[in-house]
């Protein structure tokens, strides 16, 4: 109950602080900006470690296994895990269930090929040691190469060939409206594509084609801008709705009280600033 009310007060304070930026840069905005940056940086670091590194890397290298049943290479392998457990107990947990000792994380199948990812990750940390810092470039090269490979087919198949297929439309379909739509679409695609020709000088007739292309692009940008305004207003409505909800008695009139306090502080600090300026002058 009290936690809910406290949460509402914090939410209202931070929302109003950020909105106060519309008036001018001020202490409330600065405070909320720093809180936002700090909290989000910590939030992302935590998520990256506990959702990615721990379960998906360590969990694949050392999935949970019964210690007594380990044999051969895995006995040695889970021995390393045990050392890590001693050093970092929370990250590399061991647990006893019904008197049986288990080592490892989660129940994903063991996949030692993740060692490559592990090594590349360690290479990134070598940045801290200038002499071998160059090894981190291998990791960066992997990220870039992997992304290019992963995306190449998808983009080419769906965005290039798929869209070319969709643009091959008849100029006359038997229906006037549909035919006009097709012609507009075709002219838009071809002139738009031509605008992005860099190795040909756009002069004479080609300049007209390129100009038509940029007009089509401008129409697209205009429409996008309209959609963006729509989205921003929706988000504003969402925040206002929360502010209205939190202005009720059950939340201790959080919105009106905080709003009044902030307006008063801003007016006072504005006056002080003015006085200081006058004194300086």
């Amino acid at each position: 109950m009290y936690i809910g009310i406290l949460g509402a007060w914090v939410a209202v304070f931070l929302t109003l602080s950020i909105l106060s930026y519309l008036y001018k840069d001020n202490v409330f905005y600065k405070l909320s900006e720093h809180i936002f940056v700090g909290v989000s940086a910590a939030h992302w670091a935590t998520i990256a470690f506990w959702n990615q590194v721990q379960p998906n890397l360590f969990g694949r290298l050392w999935p949970q296994a019964e210690v007594a049943a380990l044999e051969g290479f895995n006995k040695f392998w889970y021995g390393i895990y045990h050392v890590l457990h001693v050093l970092f107990e929370k990250v590399f947990p061991e647990e006893t269930i019904n008197g049986v000792l288990y080592r490892g994380i989660g129940d994903q199948p063991q996949n030692l090929s993740y060692l490559i990812a592990f090594i590349l990750g360690v290479f990134m940390l070598f940045r801290l040691i200038p002499k071998i810092g160059w090894l981190s470039r291998w990791s960066l090269a992997y990220v870039i190469g992997m992304a290019a490979g992963l995306r190449l087919y998808g983009y080419m198949s769906s965005d290039v060939i798929g869209q070319i297929h969709a643009t091959m439309l008849p100029l006359w379909t038997g229906n006037l409206g549909e035919s006009i739509n097709n012609i507009i679409l075709i002219v838009g695609v071809l002139t738009g594509l031509f605008y992005f020709f860099f190795s040909v000088e756009h002069k004479g007739a080609l300049k007209i084609v390129s100009r038509i292309g940029i007009y089509f692009l401008m129409v697209y940008f205009g429409a996008s801008f309209g959609f963006a305004v729509m989205g921003r207003i929706s988000l504003l409505i969402g925040r206002f709705n929360d502010l209205i909800e939190y202005s009720g008695k059950q939340y201790g009139f959080a919105t009106p009280i905080l709003l009044l306090i902030m307006v008063a502080v801003l007016i006072l600090s504005g006056r002080k600033e003015k006085k200081n300026k006058e004194a300086e002058a």
């Binding site: 070319i164 594509l193 992005f196």
Partner: peptide, 21 residues
């Protein structure tokens, strides 16, 4: 640029064929 030109030609040919069903 050359690839774009080829794609434009393909679109043009496709439109012609489609127009004639």
């Amino acid at each position: 640029d050359i690839v774009k030109a080829i794609l434009m030609v393909c679109i043009g040919i496709g439109i012609l064929f489609e127009t004639f069903n």
